[in-house]
Every structure is written in C-alpha cells, then in structure tokens.
C-alpha cells in the first residue's frame, strides 16, 4: 500500500519518473515483439506462397511432359531446380528429366540429373530413392559392379523389394546365378501379395534356380 501513501500529485510524478526511466525499453520491447509476430507471419506466408508457386510450376511441367512439349518441360525444370531447390518439386523435376534423357539413351546426362536430385532430396527416404535410380542407370550402362556397390550404400531395410531385384539383375550380369537367386527371393519376400510384378520376379527367380534346386 506504499503507493497509496502519496497524494495524487506525487503519485503522478512517481509514475512519470518511472515511465521516463523505463519507457524506452518498454517501447522497444513492444516494437520488437510486434516485429517478431509480424515477421513470423510474413515468413510463413512467404514460404506457403513459395511452395504453392513450386507446386504450380510442377503441375505445368506434368502437363507439358504429357503433351510431349519437351522444350517447355526443360524450361520449367530449370526454373524449379534454380529457384525452388528447397522444395521437393525440384528433385522430382530433375528425376523426371533423367527419365526423359534415358528414353533418348543419354545416360551420362541422366546420371547428372539424378545426382542433383539425390543431393537435393532433403529427406533420407527420398535420397535413397534417387540412389536406387542411379544404380539402375549404372546397370543400364553395363556397370554391374558399380550398381552393386551403389546398392550397398542404401540404408538397410529401405526399398528392399526394388533394391534386391536390381541387385539380382546385376548379379545375373556378373554370372553369379545363385547369389542372384537369393536376391530375387528376398525381393519377392518383401513385395506385397497383390503386387503385379510378382509374376515377373517369380520368372527371374525360377530362371536362376541353382543346381541343387531352390532352397
């Protein structure tokens, strides 16, 4: 009740003095706080807009690719890789570029695009996906050993079915039939029961039956 002991004039004087001493820091605090809130919101809306732009460009890229407008697709891909590398769309666009290049037999350029996607994947599971695709290109270029080595770098338990099938393909190429057989068996075990590629994988498995029969 100390404050009430003063009369009104003294009270107001006290208040003024207090304000003189602390007014600046209060004002700075309020401004800072407002800036922080405002800035946070700005940043969030900027980020959302940035992502939406990337999504829209990626959409346009899909349409261009479906319509076989390669030039436009390439322009959009470049744009995504340059300005939107912090979104997953850039990596996917690079991956699609690689698929187009592979259709034309340009493996080395496809490899570059996939390596870029691998480096910018932003997530371990996505990164492994592009590693897997690089291994597929290795094998397509006849580098079965390189493909095997690359598949070996995948974290255990990721993309088991796809990776083991590819491993089997590489091992067949190297003439290691019974190792391939084991790899195909592992791939088949990892595939869901209703996966349509089971029959193809079964054929690969049967084709590598070792002399002692399948285990």
């Amino acid at each position: 009740m100390a404050f009430e002991a003063y009369d009104e004039y003294e009270q107001s004087e006290k208040l003024r003095q207090w304000l003189r001493e602390n007014g600046l820091s209060i004002a700075v605090g309020i401004v800072l706080g407002l800036l922080l809130i405002f800035g946070w919101q700005q940043w969030r809306s900027h980020r959302a807009q940035h992502r939406a732009e990337a999504a829209a460009r990626y959409d346009a890229l899909q349409m261009a690719a479906d319509a076989q407008q390669t030039e436009q697709a390439d322009t959009l891909t470049d744009q995504l890789m340059k300005d939107y590398a912090d979104t997953p769309y850039a990596a996917f666009a690079a991956g699609e570029r690689a698929a187009r290049l592979i259709d034309k037999g340009q493996f080395d350029q496809a490899r570059t695009a996939l390596a870029w996607a691998e480096a910018h994947a932003g997530d371990a599971a996505l990164k492994s996906l592009f590693t897997l695709r690089l291994a597929r290109v290795d094998l397509a270029q006849g580098k079965a050993d390189a493909a095997l080595a690359r598949l070996g770098t995948l974290p255990a338990g990721t993309y088991v079915a796809l990776a083991q099938e590819l491993r089997g393909d590489a091992l067949v190429k190297l003439g290691r039939g019974s190792d391939a057989h084991a790899a195909y068996a592992a791939a088949l075990a990892a595939l869901p029961e209703d996966a349509p590629q089971r029959s193809l994988l079964q054929v690969k498995l049967d084709d590598t039956t070792p002399a002692g029969g399948s285990k």
Partner: peptide
C-alpha cells in the same frame, strides 16, 4: 516437412 503444397487453383 519437405515443402510440398497444393495451390488454391488445384
């Protein structure tokens, strides 16, 4: 986390 988005137009 990765930054996927859906635009209003979509």
């Amino acid at each position: 986390k990765l930054g996927a988005a859906v635009s209003d137009a979509q």
